[in-house]
């Protein structure tokens, strides 16, 4: 474990807490893409299949359970909570996210480390996570006003993977010198997808203006 990875995990956890706070405090999920949240449930379930079969550390196990639990809780809130589900606007959550599943799965069948169920699904989860934010970004571009908590949520969600890129650089040059091509490339694609969001987010923060993404 290094500082970049710990900071990345904490930033990721913080983004989820910001989202849960927004939904729980305002009893509203306006501006949040249910599709991105559903993709994240699939990402965590396929990523953490070894939750009960492989013990890495207490930290690792606890964080996996927290990520699976919170991602389920968010989808439950948005689908079934009597007040929150009324605030979900499915007309603006238009991205056809199921179209992401098959290409990621096929790519995982072609490009993986080992051809085992666990490894192919783990690889699938990395490819899927790289594109899971797309429905949310598309929704933000279409929504007129982005509330601060939603903007902060997306910012921290993008920042966590950027910190992981620093973690991979650190690990490769200063620790085990092992190439991890699949997480590296997926993580770079994932972080790159946030590039224009980061630009407009920081610009709005500097100019003390409301965050607005060009359509």
């Amino acid at each position: 474990m290094n500082l970049f990875r710990l900071a990345g995990d904490m930033t990721h956890l913080f983004s989820i807490i910001v989202l849960l706070l927004k939904i729980h405090a305002t009893k509203s999920c306006s501006g949040i893409s249910l599709k991105t949240q559903e993709l994240y449930v699939i990402v965590f379930l396929t990523r953490y299949l070894d939750l009960f079969t492989r013990f890495v550390s207490l930290y690792n196990t606890v964080m996996k359970i927290v990520f699976i639990g919170t991602s389920f809780a968010i989808v439950w809130y948005m689908r079934y909570h009597k007040v929150v589900k009324q605030t979900y606007n499915k007309d603006e959550d238009t991205f056809k996210h199921y179209f992401l599943l098959l290409p990621c799965f096929v790519l995982a069948l072609l490009l993986h480390n080992e051809f085992t169920t666990m490894d192919v699904l783990w690889t699938f989860s990395l490819y899927l996570e790289a594109v899971a934010i797309l429905p949310q970004l598309v929704l933000l571009q279409q929504s007129r006003n982005i509330d601060n908590l939603t903007g902060n949520y997306v910012f921290f969600l993008g920042a966590y993977r950027g910190l992981y890129v620093l973690n991979w650089i650190y690990r490769y040059f200063l620790q085990d010198h092992r190439a991890r091509w699949i997480p590296w490339i997926s993580g770079l694609v994932q972080t790159a997808l946030y590039a224009d969001f980061f630009y407009y987010y920081i610009l709005s923060w500097k100019k003390h203006e409301k965050l607005k993404l060009p359509a």
Binding site: H12, K64, Y164
Partner: peptide, 10 residues
Amino acid sequence: QSAQPAKDEL
């Protein structure tokens, strides 16, 4: 092909 690096990341 040496065994792949451990999957110790989240």
